[in-house]
Amino acid sequence: MESTTGQPRLRSGGSSRHRKDLSLTSRLPRAALNIWIVLGIGALVLWLAASKPLPAAAAAVPENSWFVDMNRFAASAHASFSCEECHGTMLEDGGRHPDPQHPQFLRQQASRSYDYERCGKCHRLSHERYKKGAHAKALEKEKKAEQEGQANPNPQKESLMAPTCGECHSSHYDVSGRSRVALGKRQVEVCGSCHPRYTESYMKNIHGRTGVDLGNEQSAYCTDCHGAHSVASLAKGEEALPVCLRCHPQAGPEFANVVIHELASVTEPPEEPAPKDAATLWIQRVRIAAIAVVVLSLVFFFGHSALWLLRELHEKLRKH
């Protein structure tokens, strides 16, 4: 084989190694190179450094206390209002003070006891849209079920789950003039408090990455597609396409089948079927295969190189 003839040549090559090393080092100043290496490692450490987790999806958004922090209220959008403008006077309710001995006194959620019809006095359009939207319809359904005396299927939860104004907006503390990006980040928190799977999947999508993580205001936030008060699910492609067209005017019908919320999972069966489940499962299978290829390739390449390095080190040490 070639190895027998190759060896003597290689040995003679090895004896000239020191000379070669010196000439190369003199050409390239070692200090400059070391700085380069240190910078490279520094950049790598920076890159891998503390990664900020996703915005907490379950943050308590509306502040449901019965007490109002007047300092924060003074900075809010409603600061110029007197209390009576929204809450009326004590006389309106027959002049009765709520009974402090009542077991539910101050225990019920504040936002659930307010009559949000009053918001419509000023915010007429939003209120009308809300009343036609899916949240209001869900609330109607829940109220009806309660009136018919059905047992609450989930005793851990409040009997009424569907949101009114106060579940999403804080009438005492929300400030006006927030930027589009700030509102988008807030939407991820607010919507995520009830729809965590949807905000989690949104944050893995390019819209969530660029819009929320990277603060790009041209990206679509929750309400840009689903509407703020009208609340459209967009589960059907023909509902979604007009929404896509707002930002992607060249889009055709199939464009609406691009998966934004990857809800299904190959590892755990979904609690409830979601649209695009079949496509999502294919995406995940491809992802698993891709990860396997990457890991196997890295094991091969890095293993090969580690052996190479060890062998060359051994050669150097042996000759010392």
Binding site: H248, Q250, A251, G252, E254, F255, A256, N257, V258, V259, E262, K276, A279, T280, W282, I283
Partner: peptide, 14 residues
């Protein structure tokens, strides 16, 4: 993606 979904299924973009 608008061009390619003209002849490919939408989830090919994903």
């Amino acid at each position: 993606p608008e061009f390619f979904t003209g002849f490919l299924p939408g989830f090919f973009v994903n």
